[in-house]
Design a protein around this nucleic acid. Sequence first.
DNA 1: GACCGAAAGTGACGCCCCGTCAACTTTCAT
DNA 2: ATGAAAGTTGACGGGGCGTCACTTTCGGTC
Lengths: 207, 207
Amino acid sequence: MSVDLDAKTRGKREETKASNRQAIIDAARRVFAELGYGATTVRDIIRATDLASGTFYNYFKSKEEVFQALQDETALRVRPRLRAERIRARNFEEFISGSFRTFFDFVKNDRTTFATMRSNHPEMSRVRIDTPEVIAGFDELRADLEVAIENGVVPDTDPNLLMASIVGVAFEVAHEMLTRDLAVEDTAKFATALFLGGVQALPKRKA
Amino acid sequence: MSVDLDAKTRGKREETKASNRQAIIDAARRVFAELGYGATTVRDIIRATDLASGTFYNYFKSKEEVFQALQDETALRVRPRLRAERIRARNFEEFISGSFRTFFDFVKNDRTTFATMRSNHPEMSRVRIDTPEVIAGFDELRADLEVAIENGVVPDTDPNLLMASIVGVAFEVAHEMLTRDLAVEDTAKFATALFLGGVQALPKRKA
DNA sequence: GACCGAAAGTGACGCCCCGTCAACTTTCAT
DNA sequence: ATGAAAGTTGACGGGGCGTCACTTTCGGTC
């Protein structure tokens, strides 16, 4: 149905264009997961599809760019959940705890994505890439933090530093959670307590 | 003098061995800084010395391995400073604030190293690699945290989660500090306040 | 339905990097 | 002085890179 609809709506041209792009992204996801980001080549990716090597470059400039597309796909799945959680929150505690719980839950249920997101060489290095979609997600978070500050729920502190702290803790603690197979709930409680206690003590923002 | 001494002590053999190794590491530092980690090749590094390509492989297996050596050199410079600061600390507040101040100070005065440490593709991705020396530094920190917990200065919480949080905040906030050219003192105050306030609220460790 | 121009796919090509290895040079102990 | 061990060298086969001339596919026009 939807294929027919797509075909009629977009024509065969656009149709295969979209499906080729997705085929490359899907192949990349598989290959990255298997070989690790550093070890995989554009050739590995294209070999995992039924396209020719030249075709790859009609869609992406490099493996970095496919990787970014993958990141964006991931961010696109997580962002709405985080946003929903923040909207539901009735105070700063729910804001923080809901965000951490949602993020850790995603990480736990999607280890592979998170691992690919973080690791170049398995077990050895960790990477985090900021793509437009990821940046947009961070901006959204910062905007909400600023609202919390305006409402006096959070002291008038530097929202960017606060955001950086939250992000740093989220990623690093998530890694620890996976390494030691901790429960999402406990991990979220830890991170939440740290920030709820800590935020009250933060220094006032400078002029 | 020291060259002669070295020559006599170790013989010409060991002498040039050490100097070749260092030449490669130094070249790597320059090339990484100029091209970024991802873009540099083993050939780029070896071309920046007066050695032949084959010689590289007598010293390192890959560019990853040189990179690790660089990381270790960095860790070797920072660790003693952090350790000294921790030993000087007379309570948990000094422990935390001294560590953050020292680390941020290092980052500020050594932007290039930190940038190379963190970035593959300038402005886009960030990487942190755990080499033996880095891991040893973390272990040291965790051991001191455990002592603080035993002494009752810090609640009986999970030291690994606490360490992950500190590390996450340290790196992420340092990045923010560089990006916006914040003062070391202010940045350290922020991070310190967050943890001093937060630590008291942390959940008790599970059995 | 035949025709044509544009869009997309193809894979061979030239370039460079990879890690190895046989030949060569240097060191050092005798 | 000499020979064996340690270390250096760069050429080599294998492969990935990004490009480009050529082919195929699509869709609008008559």
